[in-house]
Design a protein around this nucleic acid. Structure first.
Length: 922
RNA sequence: GCGGAUGUGGCGUAAUGGCAGCCGCGCCAGACUUAGGAUCUGGUGCCGAGAGGCGUGGGGGUUCGAGUCCCUUCAUCCGCACCA
């Protein structure tokens, strides 16, 4: 009886759904294990074969853990707010909610076909009001919190107000003297400078085409990540998240989590901690000072000019009348350059002299002040002390404008380039002379601090995250404005539901789409209810960014239906955090940083017991598409096969990979593919049309998308699962090809046949032989090792070896085949369930016990030693494993073969490695 | 520029410092056959008739022994980047 995967897979999928087989228990005596996939954005084009790669791996792991006796939480949901649905809505007028629902339904259907063991009762959708109510609630907690540097954690804003009132603030600029006497608006403004969710005038990445601001992570090479539109810098009143308060903890806690080194490094880079010193330079002409930040205070005597960012606040004040026109022109020039232009000519040096001077803090010498756009306004103090001898950017600037270059550290050749290395001895440096760089840095800081010229300081590259989006399809920010003062809603007023609008575009006056909503105003309580009963107040019109909902979803799965809390204490105390998180590496500095930030914040408030969202993270590689091309001869409807195309002027056109087999075009299918090709003519080679191919990102527009549905239809879900794992190491990116899938398909049939006798299902109850037991237990050992090391490709290969061996042994015994069904169940669950049932079990295989590895079946009494001479293996000799090294050495030297290879010479040394190898050195 | 990764047959890949190429695809030969893109058997790194030699991007080193460890260099991919 052949294995009918279509019938079997459908039947078991129905069984699992009906019996809620994969439901995680909230209370259990079993140890817990939480396996999470990064939830998908439900796009209109459905899943392609790349999506399931990570899901299959996590599903295997989840199923394995269930067999190992764990209470496994393995949920799935949808990150369903986002730009594509909104873009589509703008084009078609279709409400994003409708397209989102349709897309989700399609995703669900596709996911179900692959046989994932998700606990669907816990599904979450970020665009669902029951969900975003709590996203808004967390926003309110962030608004109501500030970061107390003394306790090094977030606290309720009331503790700050208390400090301001009692004038006991021991840090900051001491602006709280008369807090109580400030107006409500002034108090609000002051508090906004401390709240973790705050409103401020911020330089934002503004994308005119998308009509919204973007976070730094959403801008790549000066253009928007989505759409690729130009992005410019613009000052706007914006909601932001004070993630910088957590910079140090986000950095430090990386050491405690088992994430890939590349992700951790990307985050370290992004946070960009740098330790140095602030240093004040007094202006020559006034009492004002320019403060700079430097990591090389040791080079202080090498300063030959000071450079300010064009946006620096002192620029207009210190520029001399003679230089004013030049400087103003330069500032205008710098301002109008888009980010993209600035990045494009990083190498081009531009700047102007202000005409003003500062005094060197130690020598008192005059130092010219320049303006240059290589200095960034947003980093440090927006001003640098230029040491052209030992900083390559200062060097380039000095060379370009012919400014002096002073050598203060030995070791370089300043006529050629700057010497940036942090080694060498200090020269021309007064009290630092003769010191090594490291010692000089220490000494310089000490002297600077002693003379109150500045102090040790840490800077981060990390910026606060802009949180508002001028978009429709996102969570409304639960804020209204009362006389210009932002106020958050009460918890019982949540969710603030996304209102209906007539169009999904900004208003004519450039307001976000939410400004189109009619009657969408905050109505305060009437005087009868104890309120003031004034006018209705305007709500905030921007919405939250895509990463808001995904920054805490891992918590919601623990308690998905809780109507009173975002997650109950009981649930989070039990489930803690994610044990295994699998997803793409593209979220390294976006989602994965924000989710860590919110986790730490919620922990500070005592709402959850963990400081990190996931203990272990694995990034699956990307599956790329292999595009196929046909070559159309210019001005014709004639296509030439790739081998002959050099004789013609041709245009390469993408062709649907589904009508190309092994680079050979299905000509009839091509003619039917599109009306315009109905009468196409072809120039063939060897009677075939051969297409060209190229590896590209899998995308609809490149016609290289392979949907998992087709694979499932043709080979079955188990085959797809095994094959995707068999492709190679999980972390590796690879182009999709189905060249090897027949091997996996054959393997499944071969495995099925092991359980058959005379064309029907039948296993024997005879006792297994030693070689049979060895074949099985060797595999069990390997599979346990492989799964626990996430080496799924090698485990598929081990299954193949095992089935090959058992086939050779003609093994048909229950003692072997029953455990075999269990160990393969995580990989090929449908097949395993069917075998399990046929073996006479009435329960699902999901909770069977994973077999222990019994080492005694693997013990051998002899070993066939490779005997090598000078490292080259010459022959094999079997010895009893009870023999010790000396005995083997003695034995092996008496062999005729050995004598032959020794060729009369005396062995210099004989190395015997027990159970491994014999090496004779001549 | 900084950081991370990866280089092994025709292809995807495998090898706790111990026989390089497991497993699979492809290919070659054969068996069976109601001629199928089924199934089964054998072969398949390169050079060589053979004995044998050479082989894990290149060059050094450590070691009895290196794909694996160290140094160096090249190539490809990814992330960050006038961050003082």
């Amino acid at each position: 009886m052949e294995y009918n995967f279509r019938e079997v897979e459908k039947r078991w999928q129905a069984f699992w759904a009906e019996n809620k087989t994969f439901r995680a228990e909230d209370r259990s005596s079993k140890p817990k294990y939480y396996v999470l996939d990064m939830f998908p954005y439900p796009s209109g084009s459905g899943l392609h074969v790349g999506h399931p790669l990570g899901y299959i791996a996590s599903d295997i792991f989840a199923r394995y853990k269930r067999l190992k006796g764990y209470n496994v939480l393995h949920p799935m949901g949808y990150d369903s707010f986002g730009l594509p649905a909104e873009q589509y809505a703008i084009q078609t007028g279709q409400h994003p909610e409708i397209t989102t629902k349709t897309n989700i339904a399609r995703y669900r259907e596709q996911l179900d076909k692959i046989g994932f063991s998700f606990d669907w009762d816990r599904e979450v959708r970020t665009s669902n009001p029951d969900y975003y109510k709590w996203t808004q609630w967390i926003f309110i907690q962030l608004f109501n919190s500030w970061y107390n540097p003394e306790t090094d954690k977030a606290e309720n804003i009331s503790t700050l107000i208390e400090k301001l009132r009692s004038n006991t603030l021991s840090f900051g600029e001491g602006r709280g003297e008369a807090f109580s006497s400030l107006s409500e608006k002034e108090q609000s403004d002051l508090l906004l400078e401390h709240r973790l969710a705050y409103l401020s005038d911020t330089m934002v990445n503004w994308c005119p085409q998308l009509g919204t601001v973007l976070a730094n992570e959403e801008v790549k090479d000066g253009v928007s990540e989505r759409g690729g539109y130009p992005v410019e810098r613009k000052l706007m009143k914006q909601w932001s998240m004070r993630i910088t308060a957590y910079a140090d903890r986000l950095l430090k806690d990386l050491d405690g989590i088992d994430w890939t080194e590349s992700i951790k490094e990307a985050q370290r880079n992004w946070i960009g901690k740098s330790e140095g010193t602030s240093l004040k330079f007094k202006l020559q002409s006034s009492a004002e000072v320019i403060e700079v930040f430097t990591t090389r205070p040791d080079t202080i005597f090498g300063v030959s000019f000071v450079t300010l960012a064009p946006e620096h606040e002192l620029v207009s004040q210190l520029t001399t009348p003679q230089q004013k026109t030049t400087v103003d022109e330069y500032i205008l020039f710098a301002k109008n350059r888009s980010e993209r232009e600035r990045m494009a000519d990083v190498k081009k040096i531009s700047g102007v002299f202000t005409g003003a001077y500062v005094l060197h803090p130690f020598t008192g010498k005059q130092i010219p002040i320049w303006i240059g756009d290589y200095v960034l306004a947003g980093y440090g103090t927006g001003a640098v002390m230029a040491v052209p001898g030992h900083d390559s950017r200062d060097y380039a600037f000095a060379k370009h404008f012919d400014l002096p270059i002073i050598e203060v550290v030995t070791g370089g050749d300043l006529s050629k380039e700057a010497y940036d290395a942090k080694e060498g001895k200090l020269i021309n440096s007064d009290f630092l002379n003769g010191l090594e760089v490291k010692a000089a840095v220490k000494k310089a800081i000490a002297v600077i601090e002693e003379k109150s010229l500045g102090k040790g300081k840490t800077n981060f590259r990390l910026r606060d995250a802009v949180f508002g989006r001028q978009r429709y399809w996102g969570e409304p920010i639960p804020v209204y404005y009362e006389n210009g003062i932002p106020k958050v809603l009460d918890e019982n007023e949540l969710p603030l539901v996304l209102p209906e609008v007539d169009k999904y575009l900004p208003t004519e006056t450039g307001e976000p789409p939410l400004a189109r909503a009619t009657n969408w105003k905050y109505k305060p309580k009437s005087p009868f209810e104890g309120g003031k009963g004034d006018d209705a107040y305007a709500y905030e019109h921007s919405t939250m960014p895509g990463w808001a909902g995904s920054s805490w979803y891992f918590l919601r799965y623990m308690d998905a239906h809780n109507r009173k809390e975002f997650v109950s204490k009981e649930a989070v105390d039990y489930w803690q955090n994610v044990d295994l998180y699998i997803g793409g590496a593209e979220h390294a500095t976006g989602h994965l940083l924000y989710v860590r930030f919110w986790t730490k914040f919620l922990n500070d408030l005592g709402l959850i017991p963990v400081i990190e969202p996931a203990k272990k993270l694995i990034n699956q590689g990307m599956i790329q598409g292999v595009s196929s091309f046909v070559y159309r001869i210019e001005n014709s409807n004639k296509f030439v096969s790739i081998g002959l195309k050099k004789d013609f002027e041709t245009t390469a056109l993408h062709v649907d990979v589904n009508i190309v087999n092994n680079n050979t075009l299905d000509i009839d299918a091509f003619k039917n593919w599109r009306e315009e090709y109905k009468d196409a003519e072809f120039i063939l080679e060897d009677g075939k049309y051969i297409c060209g191919s190229e590896v590209e990102k899998m995308s609809k527009s490149k016609w290289n998308v392979v949907s998992p549905d087709l694979m499932v239809e043709q080979y079955g879900a188990d085959c797809l699962r095994l094959y995707e794992m068999f492709l190679g190491p999980l972390e590796l990116s690879k182009p999709w090809n189905t060249n090897g899938i027949s091997g996996v398909s054959n393997f499944i049939r071969k495995l099925w046949r092991l359980y058959q006798k005379d064309e029907t299902f039948s296993v024997s109850n005879e006792a297994a032989t030693k070689p049979e037991l060895k074949a099985l237990y060797k595999t069990i050992k390997k599979i346990i090792h492989d799964i626990e090391n996430f080496s799924f490709n090698t485990s598929v290969s081990s299954f193949m070896i095992c089935v090959n061996e058992l086939t050779d042994l003609k093994c048909n015994k229950r003692e072997i085949l029953e455990p075999l069904a269990i160990i393969i169940a995580p990989y090929a669950p449908h097949l395993a369930e069917e075998l399990w049932k046929n073996l006479g079990h009435t329960e699902t295989i999901t909770y069977a016990a994973f077999p222990e590895c019994i080492e005694s079946y693997l013990v051998e009494s002899t070993f066939s030693y490779p005997v090598s001479f000078n490292g080259k293996t010459r022959f094999f000799q079997e010895y009893d494993l009870s023999l010790n090294k000396e005995q083997i050495e003695k034995e092996v030297l008496t062999l005729e073969q050995t004598q032959k290879y020794l060729d009369g010479k005396a062995p210099k040394k004989v190395i015997v490695v027990h159970n491994k190898i014999i090496n004779i050195v001549v």
